[in-house]
Design a protein around this nucleic acid. Structure first.
Length: 579
RNA sequence: GCGCCCGUAGCUCAGUGGAUAGAGUGUUGGCCUCCGAAGCCAAAGGUCGCGCGUUCGACUCGCGCCGGGCGCGCCA
């Protein structure tokens, strides 16, 4: 019976056996066993004869004949034929075709899992948005993609860690803290003009209000002290802001850390809740600040310097990334002594590698693509293998409302938040919509379309198929254990054959999605499966007078149900029994 | 200017180097006395941006163009 566990692998082995007599000298031949597009071409087709034709200088159809003649006997195969340019088409026995139904019964929620990843440790780092405000719809795409990718990798047999890199150090957090403080001062009538390059959103006012409520006027300072020695915003907006930050630190002393941490924890907590409601969870939240506190940044810089990849110019320290294919060298330590974001990022990636992953996968917005050469260069410079780092670039998600693009900017406060999006279209539709495009494709998220009680929305199409199956099974009234005794040889009409083929491809689809970092393949698979089910539903009745046939059909659609439950779970979409 | 991504039906998009390129949506016409019509069936719709190359075979790989998006800071 083990032959039937995976018919495709079985056929592959048969062909390889045949090759040992037909072409014993060829060792590095590549060929595939694949699903023909048309059912008339059999259950599987093999292109090996065409691949052989050049090296053996023989007619491909003749070679196909020779290979077919050399194939070992198999109860799996009832017929082979040679077609087209030299394809070998295989027609499987009923038992081989229907074994997937038994597999689904036996494996249940594990149906579709595989050992493809061989328990190798991989890390998926995603979202990693600065905790300086609510997550917006762009982050949503990274969240949905990363979560689905991680789930797919897990299902394909990898040991997956989901990580969020928290940018809790650096200037952006200082800007959030000073923004909060200035809003706080406003509540006491302290008139310090709120800079344009501070965070404008109402959530900043809300945090200021909370601080006032808990601590009264404790953090109030007079405007002239706040502005003392600060360059005017008209002169230089960035230096103006840096001056405000410096004064805030000086005036508030230890209280600065309170405000800073309060704002950080509020925003990080808000993002964490938002993501959890979206069905997106992380195993590890890695703090950028901890890289400094534990000396990892300095250690990484020292090692780069010891390896001779750092030089001094204009008072700053530069990493010679051009040596590793980058277009220019990059500053790691500024003239003022502060490390750049790049410096902590080098230490972070070094640390990731030291944690022993087989693959480290970063999900980044496509606008960061120019950043890849310098990070890989730094890893190379630290004697690490840059091939172990994969960057999955996710293209922009634009939001369309009333046929127009909505502008998004955290600083200006004009963004549409992920929370708002979820409220409008629902978590299921949002999760599914986000992964229905391959990551390299720009996504226009049409709010009006997604909002409209959408028959257009494919998630309903799939969920409806699932609900229909549940309804039929309810009507049937039997118990799932009865299905083990079904005579599956009764399944053979056009619709049943198509569904059996589709179900047999489930596990392989997951593997492909894992290999290509392409969870959208799962979404499209489920759409196709649902379409075949709906078509079957309309063409045939499941509950018929013939009890044996009924049982076989219920067994089949139960396997469809299982594939849908498992597949939708990977995408973070629910599988309701009623809609 | 350089780099990355995209270009497939009117529109939105799938398509591990294989046989006659597929869905959804839109248009037109059908299907509920029957397990849920949020469904199904059918018709119509294509120089796969253009050119050259590799290959037995190219939407798929390579090179060069054309068009669109994004990125090229001592920002993160």
């Amino acid at each position: 019976m083990s032959d039937f566990q995976d018919p495709k692998a079985h056929l592959f082995a048969l062909v390889q056996t045949a090759l040992t007599s037909v072409a014993p000298d060829l060792t590095d031949l590549t060929f595939v066993i694949e699903r023909p597009k048309q059912a008339a071409h059999g259950d599987y087709a093999c292109n090996v004869a065409m691949q052989l034709t050049r090296s053996l200088r023989r007619n491909p159809r003749e070679l196909a004949q020779a290979i077919v003649a050399a194939l070992p006997e198999s109860t799996c195969v009832i017929k082979t034929e040679i077609a087209g340019a030299g394809f070998i088409n295989f027609f499987l026995s009923s038992a081989a075709r229907t074994q997937v139904v038994k597999l689904a019964q036996e494996q249940g929620e594990r149906f579709g899992r595989s050992e493809y990843g061989a328990r190798k440790k991989v890390q998926v780092e995603f979202v990693s948005a600065n905790p300086t405000g609510p997550l917006h719809v762009g982050h949503g795409r990274g969240a949905a993609y990363g979560a689905s990718l991680a789930a797919v990798l897990d299902f394909a047999g990898y040991k997956v860690q989901r990580e969020y890199y928290v940018n809790d150090a650096g200037r952006q957090m200082d800007i959030l803290a000073v923004s909060t403080w200035l809003r706080y001062l406003e509540q006491f009538g302290i008139d310090v003009p709120f800079p344009k390059n501070c965070y404008q959103g109402d959530y900043v006012r809300e945090m200021a209000r909370q601080i006032k409520e808990s601590h009264g006027d404790r953090y109030v300072h007079q405007p002239w002290t706040v502005l003392e020695g600060v360059k005017s915003a008209e002169e230089d907006v960035e230096e103006h802001l840096d001056g405000l930050i410096a004064n805030a630190k000086k005036l508030l002393e230890d209280d600065w850390h309170y405000i800073h941490n309060f704002a950080l924890n509020e925003q990080l907590g808000d993002g964490r809740n938002d993501l959890a409601e979206f069905g997106v969870h992380f195993d590890n939240w890695y703090s950028e600040k901890s890289l400094y506190d534990s000396g990892l940044v300095e250690r990484a810089m020292d090692q780069l310097e010891a390896n001779g990849h750092i030089y001094l110019q204009d008072g700053a320290k530069w990493f010679r990334s051009t040596h590793f294919g980058d277009e220019k060298d990059r500053v790691v330590q500024r003239e003022n002594g502060l490390f750049t974001y790049f410096a902590s990022d080098i230490a972070y990636h070094q640390n990731k590698f030291e944690r022993g992953f087989h693959k480290v996968i970063n999900v980044w917005g496509a606008d960061h693509h120019g950043y890849i050469p310098r990070v890989k260069g730094a890893l190379t410079a630290l004697n690490m293998d840059p091939e172990k780092l994969d960057i999955a670039l996710v293209q922009f998600a634009n939001l369309i409302r009333d046929g127009k693009q909505v502008s998004m900017s955290t600083r200006s406060g004009e963004f549409v938040t992920l929370r708002e999006l979820r409220a409008e279209v629902g978590n299921d539709a949002a999760r599914f919509f986000y992964v229905l495009r391959k990551s390299e494709q720009h996504l226009d998220f049409d709010l009006d379309l997604a909002k409209s009680q959408s028959n257009d929305n494919p998630v309903y199409y799939i969920q409806y198929a699932h609900a229909r199956i549940c309804r039929v099974q309810e009507e049937w009234g039997g118990v799932r254990a009865d299905l083990a005794g079904a005579n599956l040889d009764l399944l053979g009409n056009e619709h049943e054959t198509a569904i059996l083929r589709r179900l047999s491809d489930f596990s392989e689809t997951i593997e492909n999605a894992a290999r290509e970092y392409a969870p959208h393949l799962v979404a499209f698979y489920l759409k196709d499966l649902a379409a075949e089910f709906h078509s079957y539903y309309n063409a045939e009745r499941f509950l018929v007078d013939d009890a044996e046939l009924t049982l076989a059909r219920i067994a089949l659609i139960d396997a469809v149900r299982q594939a849908m439950v498992n597949g939708l779970a990977l995408l973070g979409v629910s599988a309701p029994e009623k809609m």
